[in-house]
Design a binder for these strands. Structure first.
Length: 409
RNA sequence: GGAGGGAUUCCCGAGUUGGCCAAAGGGGGCAGACUGUAAAUCUGCUAGCUACGCUUUCAGAGGUUCGAAUCCUCUUCCCUCCA
């Protein structure tokens, strides 16, 4: 089997390493225990986390042992990295809820049986720390001067950085030390924004345990404008199907920009690299084929084959002008709600396509609403039973690619 | 604790000799055109509503005035310098 380091490199995962040749050698010759931490900021992981999960899966497949750490302890502090403002403090209950939600999801993607992977919560040790003891043992190894030069704190100079958050790096470094002691964990992976936090841990282990330790950061997916991928205006793209439906999830990847298709295929699917390169090289409208493959493959990994098939079928039906399929977002409307007719704006509001009636009025006036493919131009249009036709359903289209089906019940 | 500066619509940021301010400009978002469910570009929209008008907005609470984002008082929060 080829070295997983080369696999990760070829697929585009690796951004920075602390000791490239040593890491490569290590991964080639022995079963290595490594860890990635997840902050419990919500009860579901997001598309952004998925990239790091893929890295873990590749590593596990190559025979190494992943430790999935969920930060029930560090979550009490909050990582100041890339935050322009201080994050609001979460309650302990909230954190615990989020930790269990994330752990549940992580267990779907990694194989935990027979000690093939380990799940930990750093609250188990961080909450028991003794302040003075910690300062004497660990604090002595950190230079504030150096910490202040870390990139992740720079953006906070203007807005302010609390001592609470300043300690985040130390806590994360301590985690690595603890995992090194408990599980002989010698490698930490993380998003590239975690570089300074990872370095802290690597150096701490080298100083306190006089043992080698390594760090490696993974690329961050960004759009051509430099925005982090995996975010939409309405929020993150979640892995939890109740937060982001498989259809929406599929559509998100179906719509990635051309220039990101090849990267995404390498990072977020298991397709062989020859195939990735072939698909990525498709030009012009042809690349849509590649996007469909990307969307299908990643949906399959995250939500399973059935959901992926459904999402794909729904997308095909809607965009190729075909007809029904099960997983188009659907709302039920009762006969009594319909009555003798319901004005279109109210209907749009009921099914959640608009937030305010003004928005609906604008939308219709600008020609953004279609009922069963027919553009509606009067904002006071009244929808009656007739619009639902024989099948008692109505397909509303907002703009080019937002669809909502209404079923009369 | 002392001195000064600030808080504006989703974000950034104009506006502070009181009316012409639902509030410039940019960003973002939405829609339209062009396209390939892409990017770029162009156009329009972007507080709410029972909509040629009406109602609620410019940190919060009062006040002056025919009329306040703009003036006065108090409060809260933030920043800078000093200690």
């Amino acid at each position: 089997m080829s070295n997983v380091f080369d696999v990760l490199l070829e697929r585009g995962f690796i951004e920075q390493t602390t000791h490239e040749s040593e890491i490569r050698e290590l991964l080639a010759k022995e079963k290595t225990t490594f860890y990635i931490g997840f902050d419990p900021t919500a009860d579901s992981l997001t598309a952004g986390h998925f990239l790091t999960i893929m890295a873990m899966i590749h590593m596990q497949k190559a025979g190494h042992r992943p430790i999935a750490l969920v930060g029930g302890g560090t979550g009490m502090i909050g990582d100041p990295t890339d935050k322009t403002d201080m994050r609001k403090m979460m309650t302990v209950e909230q954190i615990q809820h989020n930790v269990s939600g994330m752990q549940k999801q992580l267990s779907q993607y990694l194989e935990f049986a027979e000690d093939k992977a380990v799940m930990v919560n750093n609250a188990d040790w961080l909450t028991k720390l003794n302040y003075i003891e910690l300062l004497r043992e660990v604090g002595i190894h950190f230079s504030v001067n150096r910490m202040l030069t870390a990139e992740c704190y720079k953006s906070r100079y203007e807005k302010g950085l609390t001592f609470l958050e300043f300690n985040y790096m130390i806590m994360q470094s301590y985690d690595f030390l603890e995992l090194n002691n408990r599980y002989n964990c010698v490698l930490q992976l993380g998003g590239n924004d975690q570089w300074s936090n990872i370095l802290g841990g690597v150096e701490l282990i080298r100083r306190m345990n006089s043992k080698p330790a390594f760090g490696m950061t993974l690329t961050l997916l960004t759009t051509s404008e430099g925005q982090k991928m995996g975010k939409t205006v309405s929020g993150a793209v979640w892995l939890d199907p109740n937060r982001t439906s498989p259809y929406e999830f599929y559509q998100y990847w179906r719509n990635v920009e051309d220039s990101n298709v090849e990267r995404c295929l390498g990072l977020l699917t298991f397709l062989p690299m020859e195939e990735v390169r072939r698909l990525g090289a498709l030009a012009g409208a042809e690349i849509n084929t590649a996007k469909a493959v990307l969307a299908y493959e990643i949906t399959k990994i995250v939500h399973g084959e059935t959901a992926a098939n459904e999402a794909q079928a729904a997308a095909k039906a809607l965009f190729a002008g075909g007809v029904d399929s099960g997983s188009i977002p659907t709302t039920e409307l009762s006969q009594s709600e319909l009555g003798d007719g319901i004005d279109l704006i109210t209907l749009l509001h009921t099914v959640g396509l608009i937030q305010t009636r003004s928005e609906g009025r604008r939308l219709i006036q600008q020609g953004g609403i279609y009922l069963d493919g027919t553009q509606i131009s009067e904002f006071d249009y009244v929808v009656t039973k007739k619009d639902f036709g024989d099948k008692a359903e109505l397909l509303i289209r907002k703009g080019k690619k937002v669809f909502q089906r209404v079923e009369l019940s």
